[in-house]
Simulated assay, not measured.
Amino acid sequence: MDLPLVVVKDLHKSFGSFKAIDGVDLSIAPSEKVAIIGSSGSGKTTLLRCIAYLEKPTNGLITIDGKSIGEKVVGARKVPMSDKEIAQIRTGIGMVFQRFNLFPHLTALENIMLGPLKVLRRKREDVEPIARDLLQKVGLPHKANAYPDHLSGGQQQRVAIARSLAMKPKLMLFDEATSALDPELVGEVLHVIRQLAEEGMTMLIVTHEMSFAEEVADRIVVMDHGVIVDQGAPDTLVSSPAHPRTLALLRPNREPRSTALRAGTSS
């Protein structure tokens, strides 16, 4: 059996007295697609940001492909990693957020090429064909020379996905990648994510698109108040949710069975 690509052990993250993450354990296998759902403030985004070490955990351990991120063992003690060491591990993590964060002064092609050129120190003649192939992959070969302000929101997000893929990541993190888009543009971004899923990319997807989560994910994780309250295969969660929060998210128009039975008994 393959070892997990991502392991999160007893993760905690507090902002002052507020516990955003309160003891999360999570493992993700290579090529597994995991969707994280939950109401606003449940800790979904904070979990992703901790995994990428954009937020420093208050406590706990995170490993990516067997390597801990944030801390290392020197002698008999743990010491913080340098920013350079964290950045090196982060090159294996692709991140796509609600906002596209494209550089406005660079074309779509230049935005995609930037990471391999500046971070990986690759040569332009090697990087440009890959970047053009990625534009083809996300359906935008004709937009290579377009600047972000000449692209729709859906097109910008697809360029952002291509930019992440240019670094050849082992893991892709999607944080509500469609939430800032107009409804008619959501489908084109979900199509690209669906294609990556079919190709076997390991993905952790925070989403409010419940039907999409059920379709694409191998496993759905339900978070509430900073903890994981339920998880399992989509079919299992939809048919037999173990927690009322799961039922409220996946089947919002249906009462939990226990509630319905109590209501029937009392009437």
Rank of each mutant, 00 (worst) to 15 (best):
G92M: 12
G94S: 09
G94Q: 09
M95W: 05
M95I: 15
M95H: 06
F97Q: 04
F97C: 11
Q98F: 11
R99I: 01
R99A: 09
F100Q: 11
F100K: 00
L102M: 06
L102K: 00
F103V: 05
F103L: 15
P104R: 02
L109P: 01
L109S: 02
L109A: 13
E110T: 07
E110P: 02
N111E: 11
N111M: 04
M113Q: 13
G115V: 13
P116A: 12
L117H: 08
V119C: 09
K123T: 00
R124P: 09
R124V: 05
E125D: 15
D126W: 03
E128A: 00
P129C: 07
D133P: 06
L134F: 04
L134P: 02
L134G: 03
L135Y: 10
Q136D: 15
Q136F: 05
K137S: 09
K137Q: 14
K137H: 14
V138I: 13
V138H: 03
V138K: 03
G139A: 12
P141A: 13
P141F: 05
H142C: 00
A144V: 09
N145I: 00
A146S: 14
Y147D: 09
P148R: 12
D149S: 13
S152K: 08
Q155C: 10
Q157E: 11
R158V: 06
V159P: 00
V159C: 04
A160G: 04
I161W: 12
A162V: 05
R163I: 05
S164Q: 04
S164P: 07
K170C: 04
K170F: 04
K170N: 08
L171Y: 04
L171R: 06
L171D: 12
L173Y: 01
E176W: 11
E176H: 10
A177K: 02
A177W: 01
A177I: 05
A177C: 06
T178A: 08
T178F: 00
S179F: 10
A180P: 01
L181Y: 11
P183E: 13
P183C: 02
E184W: 12
G187R: 10
V189Y: 01
V189A: 03
L190T: 09
L190A: 06
L190F: 08
H191A: 15
H191Q: 15
Q195W: 09
L196T: 01
L196A: 07
E198P: 00
E198L: 12
E199R: 05
T202S: 06
T202E: 07
T202Q: 02
L204S: 01
I205F: 10
T207P: 14
T207Y: 05
H208P: 09
H208R: 07
E209G: 07
A213I: 01
A213C: 11
E214H: 14
E214T: 14
E215L: 12
V216E: 08
A217P: 11
A217T: 12
R219G: 02
R219T: 12
I220C: 01
I220H: 07
V221R: 03
V221M: 06
V221A: 06
V222A: 00
V222F: 08
M223L: 11
M223N: 11
M223Y: 07
M223Q: 10
M223I: 11
D224V: 03
H225Y: 12
V227F: 06
I228S: 09
I228D: 03
I228Y: 05
V229Y: 04
V229P: 02
V229N: 01
D230K: 08
A233V: 13
A233F: 00
D235V: 10
D235F: 01
T236M: 13
T236C: 03
L237T: 08
L237H: 04
V238Y: 10
